[in-house]
């Protein structure tokens, strides 16, 4: 069996607003659009994914928060409705998800071998988190590939952002080994915003773009610093300053997703493909991808 490989890594933020704005059949609320810069970027990355041969999407989500180790989805199918606990007015999504349980098991096993506390999630009533659904819907609205969801163990809460970085990097290395062993071609998804300070009020029409802007300028400057490092292919440097970025901008990188993905991909030294940056209810959101294949790698924006 040939070795498995990571064929793409995606930074895919999950504000439910982008699904709401797309008006898919699965989502109950109806919008007049909004957040086009982000959505059009997502649409373009989704088109690129259609040109790539892969077997599964593996997503690390901050909205399945676990404190007792890292958990993996462990049943072949989940069908239910996801209602966002914070924005239920815009996200009530009926989902039908297939899971690559075999890959999930191998990842859990490898993580365990690396000394990471792990658990398979095998309760059929479990509701898949809206981070997974939003990012996966935006990248693959046809839902024609199985996924693996990995929970975010909250090391940043229990210890520090530095410990989070170390633990997430170890998990990344374990997942990379598991993918190689599986013989599968896998797309990794790190599902989160960058800066993550929200407005605590909402306009009467959530998609009123005249009201949308970054929470404050320092959040924006930090976000752009990260985008610059991504453009320059300096992912090791980026991960090194991530604890400070996380603290300064209360960033959603605290969950460990970006560190996990970069570690799994060997801290790429090539430019990221930048697809779009836009604020959503004050938070900074970037759609980006890392393509290990130099032939298909693009300068998008």
């Amino acid at each position: 069996m040939p070795k498995g490989e990571i064929v793409l890594g995606c930074l895919a933020p999950h504000p439910p607003h982008v699904v709401y704005a797309e008006n898919p059949d699965q989502n109950e609320p109806v919008s007049e659009g909004g957040w086009e810069t982000l959505r059009w970027g997502y649409n373009r990355l989704a088109r690129k994914l259609k040109t790539i041969d892969y077997d599964a999407l593996v997503i690390f989500t901050p909205h399945w928060q676990t404190y007792i180790g890292t958990h993996f989805l462990g049943l072949p199918e989940f069908k239910s409705k996801s209602v966002d606990p914070v924005f239920p007015n815009i996200f009530r999504y009926n989902y039908d998800i297939k899971v690559d349980v075999e890959l999930s098991e191998i990842m859990r096993e490898k993580a365990s071998e690396h000394g990471i506390i792990t658990k398979m999630m095998r309760n059929q009533d479990f509701r898949v988190d809206y981070g997974t659904i939003t990012s996966c819907h935006m990248l693959n609205p046809d839902w024609d590939k199985p996924i693996v969801t990995i929970s975010s163990n909250r090391n940043a809460h229990y210890y520090s952002a530095e410990v989070m970085n170390e633990q997430a990097a170890a998990l990344g290395r374990a997942c990379a080994e598991a993918i190689e062993e599986s013989g599968k071609k896998v797309v990794l998804i790190s599902s989160h915003s960058l800066s993550h300070r929200h407005f605590v009020t909402e306009s009467p029409l959530p998609e009123d773009m005249s009201r949308e802007h970054i929470y404050n300028h320092s959040q924006y400057v930090w976000d752009m610093k990260l985008v610059d490092l991504m453009r320059e292919g300096k992912m090791r440097e980026l991960i090194d300053i991530l604890p400070e970025f996380t603290e300064q901008t209360i960033a959603e990188t605290e969950a460990g997703g970006l560190t996990w993905m970069m570690s799994a991909m060997g801290f790429p030294q090539y430019s990221a493909e930048i697809y779009g940056y836009q604020s959503v209810i004050g938070t900074g959101n970037l759609v980006a991808a890392w393509d290990p294949n130099a032939v298909t790698r693009e300068i998008v924006l």
């Binding site: 399945w64 928060q65 676990t66 404190y67 958990h71 095998r122 309760n123 009533d125 479990f126 509701r127």
Partner: peptide
């Protein structure tokens, strides 16, 4: 039917 994130088992 609710399931806890950590204690689903």
């Amino acid at each position: 039917v609710h399931v806890d994130d950590d204690f689903h088992y």
